[in-house]
Nucleic acid binder design. Structure first.
Length: 423
DNA sequence: TCTGGGGTCCTAGGACCC
DNA sequence: TCTGGGGTCCTAGGACCC
């Protein structure tokens, strides 16, 4: 028995969110800009009709904005996050199993509803009534097909925002009309390759031999083919996965030419990154700093610098992160002083994230005068991990006692020379 | 001159997504 | 002159180990 998966997404979500609080925005062209007001990241249908493209730079559309009275907004992610959460609450009244996929999309388990279309219509009406945001729903046996159904419902008003594609015959009828490049997981590169072997529609991709899909693309394309055939390869997952990395990056209005200016930007990014870590209750194990010149200006000297460092111990402390970022920035700064580089983009990336409470215990820190004695440290290790714990001394670690999670039994290492003298 | 057969881990880069 | 920000996953290749 196939399990029906629905995907519900909001139309032009950021614009819809702005419209909730300002009725004068209805039926007029509206766009929402990216972080630095650099380009359009959301457009109302009316704005799309004017030919304003996703990600189009603001300076290229100024004429259109003036000529057609397009209403322009800076993005307000706090607001969008709040509205997103409320929409999910409504979904939860219609199914117990909700997987949040993005700020405006959820996968919903529609198992057990005899009339799925009616159920989806009722859900749609409830979201519109309670939150004020229009949503569209696609239903199918796999995520890829559900996304596809959602897309078809979005483009064809005849479906009134809901398309149930659980029926094979219906899928057989619709898939030949879907361009292969519109599929979830098929981007520009893959589309080009598929066109090269004569595959232009979703139906043709569905019928492609698995082996050919694998060799033309990767295991990802092979999974897409299977999903199109109705075999689920992407699992429905209610629990939010632990995030793996985090980034704070910005473009600079004016090119940054000296180290102090760049470091000011890096400091701001590292500070923001530390806040974000603490918000999520996380600590970072690796920090990377990068910065580069304007890549659209190949006539100017180009330079891209980046450096990573381990955070030992793992931290979400602003001072720790800024200090690590400073060392990285200095190390990555160009040695060639003869050329003046203008850096227009810089960022701080955090990796190897861990929940604060899962962080390796730092029991002994040779740099810290208050650090505990070796015996106290051993006591704590034994208390926490019992007799299975091994405590080793090695040249491996730089500063602190650290749980080596890659070993089967917990193992602590420290530098021999860092061991305190035990009296 | 010949040049094992496993592994693992790490990194860079590509592709895709919202 | 201007041209966003924040994520995930996959692969290939090198280093290193026994």
């Amino acid at each position: 028995m196939k399990r029906p998966i629905a995907i519900s997404d909001s139309a032009n979500f950021y614009v819809s969110a702005e419209r909730i609080f300002d009725p004068t925005l209805k039926n007029v062209p509206v766009i929402v800009l990216s972080n630095n007001d650099g380009c359009a990241v959301a457009r109302s249908d009316e704005a799309k009709a004017l030919g304003i493209k996703m990600g189009e730079p603001l300076h290229l559309i100024r004429d259109k904005i003036e000529a057609h009275g397009v209403r322009v907004f800076s993005s307000n992610y706090t607001l969008y996050g709040d509205i997103s959460r409320r929409v999910v609450e409504v979904y939860e009244d219609f199914t117990p199993n909700v997987e949040i996929y993005s700020i405006d999309e959820c996968f919903l388990d529609f198992t057990g509803f005899p009339d799925r279309t009616a159920h989806a219509r009722a859900m749609r009406a409830a979201v519109l009534r309670r939150i004020g945001v229009p949503v569209r729903v696609g239903i199918a046996p796999t995520k890829t097909l559900a996304k596809c159904a959602n897309d078809i419902a979005k483009r064809n008003p005849i479906f009134a925002g809901v398309l149930d594609m659980m029926d094979d015959a219906l899928a057989d009828w619709l898939l030949p009309m879907v361009p292969v490049g519109d599929l979830w997981g098929v981007g520009r590169q893959t589309e080009k390759k598929l066109h090269g072997v004569g595959i232009r529609t979703a139906a043709e991709l569905r019928d492609m031999p698995l082996r050919q899909a694998r060799s033309l693309g990767t295991v990802v394309l092979e999974r897409t083919v299977l999903e199109l055939q109705g075999e689920p390869c992407l699992s429905f997952d209610e629990v939010e996965p632990q995030r793996k990395g985090m980034a704070v990056t910005r473009s600079a209005g004016k090119p940054m030419t000296d180290f102090d200016t760049l470091f000011q930007a890096i400091t701001a990014h590292a500070t923001r990154a530390a806040e974000k870590l603490r918000q999520h209750g996380l600590v970072a194990g690796t920090l990377t700093v990068f910065f580069h010149t304007n890549r659209h200006r190949m006539d100017r000297p180009q330079y891209a610098g980046s450096r990573s460092t381990r955070m030992t111990p793992m931290s979400s402390d602003t001072f720790d992160l800024v200090e690590a970022a400073r060392r990285c920035a200095q190390a990555a700064w160009p040695k060639d002083q003869s050329r003046a580089f203008g850096f227009t983009k810089a960022g701080v990336l955090l990796d190897d994230l861990l929940r604060l409470e899962d962080r390796p215990l730092t029991l002994f820190d040779a740099q810290n005068p208050k650090s505990q004695s070796l015996m106290t440290a051993l006591d704590q290790v034994n208390q926490r991990f019992g007799k299975k714990t091994m405590v080793l001394a090695s040249e491996g670690m730089k500063r602190s006692w650290k749980l080596r999670s890659d070993h089967k039994s917990p193992r602590y290492t420290t530098r021999l020379s860092d061991l305190p003298v035990v009296r």
